[in-house]
Nucleic acid binder design. Structure first.
Length: 112
DNA sequence: ACCGTGACGAGAT
DNA sequence: CATCTCGCCACGG
């Protein structure tokens, strides 16, 4: 296990773990909050590895439009929406409803 | 070592 | 508005 990557992965996981029930955040927001110059893409990559991690609510991370772009990486494509609806987030046609309202901005909520 | 790919996003056209 | 292009960089082939 290379230590550098693990750090970077864990940073992402920590933020994701702070996302409250019923709210969602975005890849870009996390990347910006952590100051990852590598960009949102790497956050998505980190989420891929989140599978093996416990207590990482990956369903609460969507793209900047509120689309469930990562649904295919769950056990089955419906799983992500199910989990979100269990959280109390309305999802229709892979799109988070009231996205601006449920959007959870780490910079604002956790502080910059 | 090179190349294509990707859970993204911002800016240009 | 809708699309395209490019930057970003880790990883597998």
């Amino acid at each position: 296990m290379s230590n550098d990557k693990v750090n970077y992965f864990d940073l992402v996981y920590q933020v994701v773990r702070e996302v409250p029930r019923g709210r969602v955040t975005t890849y870009g927001a996390i990347a910006h909050y952590l100051g990852l110059k590598s960009g949102a893409r790497m956050v998505g990559y980190a989420m891929n590895a989140a599978h093996s991690m416990a207590d990482v609510p990956a369903q609460r991370v969507v793209n900047r439009q509120g689309l469930l772009t990562g649904k295919h990486h769950f056990e089955n494509p419906n799983r992500m929406q199910e989990l979100l609806e269990e959280d109390g987030v309305q999802v229709k046609n892979d799109q988070v409803q009231n996205f601006e309202t449920v959007f959870w901005n780490p910079e604002k909520e956790l502080g910059i």
